[in-house]
C-alpha cells in the first residue's frame, strides 16, 4: 500500500544535509550518554549505582542502534535493538535480585 508517492532522487540538498547532520549529532549525544552511564558503571560508589549505570547504558545503546538503522536505512537493527532491550531488562532484574539477597536463584 503506497500512501505517498516517492519523489525523484535529488542531488545533495538541504533536507538531506539537515537529516544527515542531525543523525550524526544524535549519535554523538548517545555516545556521550553511554560514556556517562559507563562512568557510573565503573566508578559508581555503590553496587546499586553500577546496576543503574548498566540499565542506562543498554537503553542508550539501543537508541544508538536505532539511529544507526535510520542512518543506513536498514530495518535489521530494529531486531538487534529489541533483543538488547529484552536482555538488558533481564540483566537488570537479575542484578537487582542479587543486590537484595546476595543470590540470584533462591
Amino acid at each position: 500500500m503506497r500512501f505517498l508517492p516517492l519523489p525523484p532522487a535529488r542531488p545533495l540538498d538541504l533536507p538531506f544535509l539537515v537529516l544527515d547532520w542531525s543523525l550524526f549529532i544524535a549519535q554523538l549525544f548517545l555516545g556521550l550518554a553511554m560514556a556517562c552511564a559507563a562512568y557510573r558503571l565503573i566508578f559508581g560508589p555503590r553496587a546499586q549505582d553500577r546496576v543503574l549505570g548498566l540499565d542506562t547504558f543498554y537503553v542508550n545503546a539501543m537508541l544508538l542502534l536505532l539511529t544507526y538503522g535510520i542512518r543506513i536505512a536498514s530495518a535489521v537493527y530494529f531486531e538487534v535493538a529489541l533483543i538488547i532491550g529484552m536482555l538488558g531488562f533481564v540483566g537488570t532484574v537479575a542484578l537487582s535480585k542479587f543486590i537484595m539477597r546476595g543470590e540470584v536463584i533462591e
Binding site: I25, A26, Q27, F29, L30, L32, A33, M34, C36, A37, R40, L52, G53, T56, V59, N60, L63, T67
Partner: peptide, 11 residues
C-alpha cells in the same frame, strides 16, 4: 537523543 543525553548527565 538530547533527552537521553540529559538523562545520562543527570546520572
Amino acid at each position: 537523543s538530547s533527552l537521553a543525553l540529559i538523562g545520562s548527565i543527570g546520572l
